[in-house]
Structure formats: structure tokens, C-alpha cells
Write a protein that binds this DNA or RNA. Structure first.
Lengths: 220, 220
DNA sequence: ATAAACTAACCTAACGTTTGTTTGGGTTAT
DNA sequence: ATAACCCAAACAAACGTTAGGTTAGTTTAT
């Protein structure tokens, strides 16, 4: 009868649990594991702190479940990034574009991944690879292997991802650089830029125009 | 006379202060701002927690001074990365190599930078740019502008840095990938790989060998 | 059909610990 | 003696977590 607290009552099939995971993902991504308290999470969800311990054993457990929740949420879209149509080259070009669009609209997931990279927890990094990146990565290795044998495929995939990702990761910092222009954050433009660089390099198009000597370098 | 605690006594010209900054840098880089307590820092330095407040106003102040300390420590070596000899092209090649070697041996500095990127604190990111990356970045923009006009110089610099950095940032995660080999962490090999990709792209060398069609792509 | 037992979800209140920080006093060099 | 340096002890607040109780819906026994 007493209509005291916010929103108890109804919980059809883990509604509260999902609400917690969603809000916790947001908060953990924003300020990290130690930057968020259980009380804060409970408060923002609108439940009592003690209730968290009905759904999760402890804070670390909640964090890990948030990771798995976030991974599962992305896994489907993520594996769809590698199309099966077209030549290996068009596949790669399409991937670069899809990838750039994908991470541009992402809010929390990639910040969690980045935090995990920083933390260097082997166990969690393995989860990340097994649950999320493993298949995608192997598909990419196959893709690039079909296009060129002049590079280590593993390194080439790492390079390609870094190429695209760094535009996103430095987004907030780049605004303070002299040559910054907002268009440089446009995922379509980023994708186009990265594609050209990845496929041709700065010499592929430029050398023919300038006749600059690309040698005298320890490149081979 | 009383030889009670660890290492008090002598402190010629901010010796304790420097010791705190060094240890705090290590700890902050390892576990982040919220992952380290003032007590922990004091304990590892071998002083009393209260002493920290003689040298620093509060924790946030300590953290900012750690940042400036870390930046100042790197700024000199960092600006030396852009050599003034050789053609613009050899300059860039040399930079890639020096940069790869540089971040490979770094322990704490780049993790701090990465944490700052995650935190998205505008004020601090500006400090980072002004104190550290600004000049270096502009020099690089000039360098790449001299080599090619087919790319947005700002984006090209971002790409180049991401290209190299990502090999370092994913170092701990990549061990779980199928195609991983320890040689892929060797900075010399990373530098060589990145140089080739940056200068020629995957088609610059490969296309002539395979005759693959690089078109049917929205690259131009 | 209805009462009893069970259960999952949530709460209030508090536990003990750790947090950032302060106070107030002491030591050492100038 | 003045200033810089450092410490032991304590502060209030916030922390993760737990014990115990209330509710409401479901199952079981009669």
C-alpha cells in the first residue's frame, strides 16, 4: 500500500538486471571500475544498493557481466562487418568503411575495450579475444592474405585497425591541433582516407606526380 | 639519532617531492587515478601520508603535477624525433623508426596519455597538446605536406601515428590471436612494416605482382 | 478451492574498512 | 628563530558488503 519508493513491483524476466547492466556499462565506460561505486550504480538505476547483490555476487562479478553483456550486444553486428561478396579487395574496402561508421556511432563499447587494453588483465583479454575479436580477426587475416603476401598478415590487420581506430581515439584531443577541421571526424571521410592510404600508400598516388625518390630507406 | 623509519633525513632540493612524482607516475599509469590511494603512494615512497600534503595541495593537484612531470621528462626526447637532415621522405622514414623504438621502451608515459584520452577532460587534453604534442605535431604536418598533397595533412599524421601505436597498444592482447609471433613486437620489424605500408600501401608492391584490380572502390 | 509453503525480488539498516584530508606537534637546516 | 620538512593521530565521508525483513507471485497439499 505504501507508495514510498520509485519503481519496484514489476520485473518480467530480468528487467532490473538488464537495467543494471545497461547503466553500469555506461558508468564503467565513462569513469572505469574504480570510478564508479555500487551505490552510484544503484542510485542511477533507481534501486537499493543491496539489491545489486541479489543479482551479482560482488562488484568484480558485476563488472565482468557488464563486459560479457557489452560484448554480446556487439558481437552480431561486429561479425557482419566482413561481407562475403565481391573481390577480396572490395571486401577490405567495404570493411574499412563499415568499421569506421561502426565505431563512430559507438558510445561505450570501445571505451570499455580500451580500458581493458590498459589494464593488461590476461584473463579478461582472453575473454575479449575469444568472445569477440577472434573470429573477426581471423576473417580479416584471410582477407588480407588473399590480397597480398608481401606483408605479415597479422601485422597488416593490426595496422589496418590502428589506422582507422586512431582517428576515433584522438577525436577529443585533435580539436586542439592547429590543422583540425570537423570534417576530419566524418566517418565517411575517415574511411575514404584510410582506404586510399592502405591500398596505395602515400607513394602510390603521389610518386607519379612528384617523382620523389622513395628509396634510401631501410624498407626492404 | 633515532633510526626508526625507512629513509627520512636528507632532502636536498625537493628530493622527496621528486621521489613522490616518480612513484606516483608509476602507480597512476598502472591503475589510474582512482586505482591508487594517497596512503599507497606514501607507503611506496616511504613517507607519511600527511607529508604528501606538504608538497601537494590535494590528490588532483598531485595527479596534474605528475602529468606535467611526465610530460617534461619526455618532451626533450620527443622533439628530437623529427630530424632535420635528409629529404622529407627519409625524414619521415627515420621518424617512424625512432618513434617505434621510442614507444617500445616507454613504460609509463604512454599509458598516462592513453588514460587521458579516455577521460576526455578538455582542460587536461589541452595541456597535453600545448606542452607536448603541439610542436611535434606541426613539424610532422609540415613533413608530410612536403611529401604529398593528395591527403589531408592532419589526417595523414593521425593515420601514421595510429599505424605505429596500435602495434604497441595491442601488444598484450595480440598474444591470444592465432597468427601471433613474438617477432611482431620487435620495434625494428614494426617500424619496417609501417614504413612499407605507409609509403607504398598494399598495392604499391603487391599490385605489380598480382595484377589485382584496385578499382571498383570509392577511393577517389 | 483454499491454505500453507516456497521463492525471487527488493528493501532498511548497519557492519567494518578505506578513503582524502587536517590538526598539531616535532625535527632539522639556515 | 625562522622556515621547510616530516610524522602520529584523528576526522568525516564514502566504500563494498551483509544480515534480516517485507512483499508479491507461484507452487504444493489438502
Amino acid at each position: 500500500m505504501t507508495e514510498k519508493s520509485a519503481a519496484p513491483v514489476d520485473n518480467p524476466a530480468g528487467k532490473t538486471r538488464t537495467a543494471v547492466l545497461e547503466k553500469a556499462l555506461e558508468l564503467f565506460a565513462e569513469t572505469g571500475f574504480n570510478g564508479v561505486s555500487m551505490r552510484r550504480i544503484a542510485q542511477e538505476v533507481g534501486i537499493n544498493p543491496a539489491t545489486l547483490y541479489h543479482h551479482f555476487a560482488h562488484k568484480e562479478d558485476l563488472y565482468e557481466q557488464v563486459l560479457r553483456f557489452a560484448y554480446a550486444e556487439q558481437a552480431a553486428q561486429f561479425s557482419a562487418l566482413v561481407s562475403t561478396e565481391g573481390t577480396p579487395l572490395t571486401q577490405l574496402g567495404e570493411f574499412i568503411r563499415e568499421f569506421a561508421l561502426y565505431i563512430a556511432k559507438d558510445q561505450y563499447f570501445f571505451r570499455m575495450v580500451k580500458r581493458e587494453q590498459l589494464e593488461r588483465n590476461n584473463e579478461r583479454q582472453k575473454i575479449l579475444v575469444d568472445l569477440l575479436f577472434g573470429k573477426q580477426y581471423e576473417a580479416m587475416v584471410r582477407s588480407v592474405s588473399r590480397v597480398t603476401q608481401d606483408f605479415d598478415a597479422h601485422m597488416l590487420v593490426t595496422s589496418l585497425l590502428g589506422l582507422v581506430l586512431h582517428h576515433y581515439e584522438t577525436r577529443h584531443m585533435r580539436q586542439f591541433f592547429a590543422q583540425y577541421a570537423p570534417s576530419q571526424d566524418d566517418p565517411e571521410i575517415v574511411a575514404d582516407h584510410c582506404s586510399r592510404l592502405f591500398f596505395f600508400g602515400i607513394q602510390g598516388e603521389a610518386a607519379t606526380l612528384q617523382g620523389a625518390d622513395p628509396t634510401t630507406q631501410p624498407l626492404g
